[in-house]
């Protein structure tokens, strides 16, 4: 596990689980604790009263998320947190891609019940991006598997880089960026977070940044 050691200086522990070896480094421990703390606080918080002003009116209205809607969105938030823990602790790239797509699905789920046309439009576009990006995401993993014969990060860390692996890495990058609504696709995200319900929206931002930080590590480890 040399690349993992180069990144983290030491490994706290790992679980021998067949070919897949989930491992815990200081980095992933910090990530897990962050995610757990955030998920608990976001699930406990009640949605805010959003003040809305309009041009031409001299009144400020406050609106909030309905009880039924809040219930579903809170459930999706917790699910997103669980998927994120999977993303940061897994020791297998295929599981990583599965969890990343689960994060994408829960993100759309958070916004699916908002009764607001432009938010739903943006969520729909994000869903399209997600579906398109699942091709490079799984394709990249398939390339890596075809070249090296393994998906375990512990083994991949010891394999030196070569052009085919680099192509696989680029595909993985494109795929995960699309699934997590990262930099080039953030336009849909900015539209989506105009919705109400602070804790749930914040979870989406957290999820995309956590996917991003974990993605950096995985890209370094492969090859």
């Amino acid at each position: 596990m040399n690349d993992i050691l180069d990144l983290n200086s030491y490994i706290i522990g790992h679980v021998l689980f067949g070919d897949i070896v989930p491992y815990l480094t200081p980095f992933s421990l910090a990530l897990v604790i962050t995610i757990v703390v955030f998920t608990i606080f976001l699930a406990l918080s009640k949605p805010e009263l959003r003040s809305v002003t309009r041009f031409g009116e001299d009144v400020v209205r406050t609106t909030t998320v309905g009880k039924k809607e809040a219930k579903f969105r809170r459930f999706m938030t917790i699910l997103c947190g669980v998927a994120l823990i999977g993303v940061v602790t897994t020791g297998d790239i295929f599981n990583f891609t599965l969890f990343v797509s689960l994060v994408g699905i829960t993100n759309v789920g958070i916004f699916a019940v908002v009764k607001d046309t432009h938010v739903l439009d943006a969520a729909f576009q994000y869903g399209l991006v997600m579906m398109i990006c699942s091709l490079p995401l799984f394709g990249g993993v398939a390339l890596i598997l075809a070249k090296t014969g393994t998906l375990s990060l512990g083994v991949l860390a010891g394999i030196p880089g070569n052009p085919v692996l680099n192509v696989g890495r680029m595909l993985l990058l494109v795929g995960a960026v699309g699934e997590g609504a990262l930099a080039p696709f953030f336009a849909t995200k900015v539209e989506m977070i105009r919705a109400k319900g602070a804790p749930y929206i914040n979870m989406m931002h957290l999820s995309s940044l956590m996917v991003f930080t974990r993605l950096i590590e995985i890209l370094f480890i492969v090859g």
Binding site: R50, H205, T213
Partner: peptide
Amino acid sequence: GPFSIIIMCYAVHKVSEHGIGLASGSPYTK
């Protein structure tokens, strides 16, 4: 220690900036 933890901290800092703005319900912070 590992630099990747500092990257993580920067990312979470962005998340908290976002959350601070959202949590108060004011249009400006939003």
